[in-house]
């Protein structure tokens, strides 16, 4: 429990961040920008887990470990996604979503 900051403040910040990520996911067409939006979404979920851990269940560490695992999954996802983007760039010479309608060889 942090002095003077209710739990709702943190949750509102992470909610707005989540929906900014969703908005970017819909608006942008470059695949790397879409990946950045996904990172924003994952990050806001991490904030939520840690805030619930600190404010509601401070006698356990579950939120901490969930956040740790999400960070690891985000790293794995980013590495595979970037490998795919580089391969697509080699094949199609750009990485806009509408130019890439097929991904098979």
């Amino acid at each position: 429990m942090i002095q003077g900051i209710p739990i709702q403040y943190f949750l509102i910040v992470s909610t707005i961040m989540f929906f900014i990520g969703v908005c970017g996911f819909i608006i942008r067409r470059n695949l790397i920008t879409i990946l950045m939006s996904v990172e924003l979404i994952l990050n806001s979920v991490n904030i939520n887990f840690l805030v619930f851990n600190r404010y509601l269940y401070p006698h356990q560490l579950q939120g901490n470990f969930f956040a740790l695992i999400i960070v690891a999954i985000a790293a794995a996802e980013a590495s595979v996604a970037i490998a795919l983007f580089i391969n697509m760039y080699r094949k199609f010479n750009n990485i806009d979503v509408e130019n890439i309608s097929e991904m098979k060889y």
């Binding site: 429990m1 509102i12 909610t15 929906f19 900014i20 908005c23 509601l56 269940y57």
Partner: peptide
């Protein structure tokens, strides 16, 4: 999409009664 989702989520956050445990913090 962003605004509607944001408004819904914030409304439900403000309406929900959060009740912290009374156990000592770790």
């Amino acid at each position: 999409t962003g605004l509607v989702g944001c408004a819904t989520a914030i409304w439900s956050i403000m309406a929900f009664p959060f009740s912290p445990t009374t156990q000592p913090a770790l």
